[in-house]
Write a protein that binds this DNA or RNA. Structure first.
Length: 463
RNA sequence: GGCCAUGUGGCGGAGUGGUGACGCAGCGGUCUGCAAAACCGCGUACCCCGGUUCAAUUCCGGGCGUGGCCUCCA
């Protein structure tokens, strides 16, 4: 089994991944703030690190991996949205958390073992903050509690920033009542009308970063194996998590830091402020979730990826080819699909183990499909098809029944109508009435249905 | 300005000190009543300028281009 190598942002290099305890490998991925629909860019870390999750499960055993992904369910934007719409915060966040889960499931992601919500961990945050204040790393002011960046000698080690860099770029105006412009908020005193929790510093709510520190400690432990998220989280979010957790515990927060690159839309950053976002919810109306997933995996997770319609069309075409090979294999082997214990191909395993090289792994899938299309011996067909499915599963792909893949969108009645036309065409062909047969095929094509004539008769698929 | 990435054929996108990525699209062929699907074959790709080397797309230096981060955006 090939060793897993991952690019560790902290080291700025690929490193062999060896868990602290192979019987309990811990993975934390920063999750969403739930106040609206997730866009496809939000899905990139989820898909990329779902592949990592699958790889770890395969390597160490599913029962030995603990994967947590949080929901941020209290923050300024949530409060603002609730004010706008009048929907209570709890309902709003619960509703969008459910939508998020459904979207991620549609993209073929396994659910994490834990999905903690920030508001369930406020007491843990308070304990953490109290400890930081006691150790001189934080101080209270009327506006809340602040982390004192100057109290941590190696602050900035993840993002490669020095305190001087930060001050250089910092706003000149003294914000709030903190001592240093680089200090960040651990606890915010409640303003009138805002939701609040009681604390030693009066009613208030947590700062953004502290929730992850508290949830990681509560669920996974003080030092975890892997901490992952979007590239933009390196600074300030992950930097500040490190500051809080490490100053509180005198232990490293995570052994590996993984960050995915951004999606662009027509080469521009996809962001809410620019209004160029594609919501997963909307994309799913036009594309199977697996096409979206394949498109996201077609680039390496650390590289930028331009998310375009062309990319989706290519992903769809490639998946059609892969599923086509599986469909013929199932028919030829006459066996139930997905049976038996097949292992992923060594090449695909190696590609994924090399810092989640999904494009190379996808190339491996195509290679297997080509072999499958050429295979003639039933035992060989079963073997390769099994290997192809097992390899696909490593990436959360090819899990569908090919028949479903090609014909799912048709309603039952719709399907019957298509079957009738195909049957009529078969009859016309038997009568060597080519004109009628071609007319029926044109009619089917116009309806988005492709007819495939084979030795054993004609079949059809949706385009 | 500081920091971090990145520049590969029509398009997407891996990788490598010296013959092939892979996919999509395209072209030719086999098959087919004709197609489609599948199979076989085809493309003289590595931003620019120096340097190292027998040999650089791959290493080093410089330049140019692009993207991202620089206090709450995956």
């Amino acid at each position: 089994m090939t060793e897993i190598v991952l690019y560790n942002t902290m080291a700025r290099a690929k490193q062999a991944f060896i868990p602290a305890d192979p019987r309990r490998v811990t993975l934390y991925v920063c999750g969403p703030t739930v106040y609206n629909y997730a866009h496809i860019g939000n899905a990139r870390p989820v898909v990329a690190f779902d592949v990592l999750f699958r790889l770890l499960r395969a390597r160490y055993g599913a029962e030995h991996i603990v994967h947590a992904r949080n929901f941020t369910d209290i923050d300024d934007k949530i409060i603002a949205r609730a004010r706008e719409t009048g929907e209570p915060i709890q309902e709003l966040t619960r509703r969008f958390a459910d939508i998020y889960r459904a979207d991620m499931a549609a993209l073929g992601n396994l659910p994490p073992d834990f999905e903690p919500r920030a508001t369930d961990h406020v007491s843990g945050m308070l304990t953490l903050i109290e400890g930081l204040v006691a150790k001189g790393h934080a101080y209270a002011t009327p506006s809340g509690v602040w982390f004192s960046v100057a109290s941590m000698p190696d602050y900035g080690k993840l993002s490669g920033r020095t305190l001087a860099d930060l001050l250089h770029g910092a706003r000149v105006e003294a914000m709030d009542d903190k001592n240093d412009p680089a200090d960040f908020s651990l606890w915010k005193a409640a303003k009138p009308g805002e939701p609040f929790w009681d604390s030693p510093w009066g009613p208030g709510r947590p700062g953004w970063h502290i929730e992850c520190s508290a949830m990681i400690e509560a669920i996974l432990g003080r030092t975890i194996d892997l901490h992952a998220g979007g590239h933009d989280l390196i600074f300030p979010h992950h930097e500040n998590e490190i500051a809080q957790s490490e100053c509180a515990h005198d232990a490293p927060l995570a052994r590996f830091w993984l960050h995915n690159g951004f999606l662009t839309m027509d080469s521009e950053k996809m962001s809410k402020s620019q209004g160029n976002v594609a919501l997963i919810h909307d994309l799913l109306a036009d594309w199977p979730g697996e096409v979206l997933r394949f498109a996201l995996l077609s680039g390496h997770y650390r590289a930028p990826l331009d998310f375009t319609t062309g990319l989706l069309e290519q992903a769809k075409a490639t998946l059609d080819r892969l599923y086509g090979a599986l469909e013929r294999a199932d028919a030829a082997a006459g066996a139930a699909p997905g049976t038996g214990d097949f292992a992923p191909s060594p090449e695909i395993w190696a590609a994924l183990a090399d810092d989640l090289n999904s494009p190379e792994a996808l190339a491996g899938l195509s290679g297997l499909a080509a072999s499958l299309n050429k295979a003639r011996i039933p035992a060989e067909i079963t073997e390769i098809a099994g290997q192809l499915r097992a390899s696909g599963e490593m990436m959360g792909l090819l899990g569908a029944d090919p028949a479903h893949w090609f014909r799912a969108k048709a309603g039952d009645g719709d399907s019957d109508a298509i079957e009738a036309l195909v049957a009529a065409r078969t009859a016309a062909r038997a009568a060597r009435n080519w004109a009628e047969a071609d007319r029926l095929r044109d009619q089917l094509n116009a309806a988005g249905v492709e007819v495939l004539d084979g030795a054993g008769g004609s079949s059809w698929r949706r385009r």
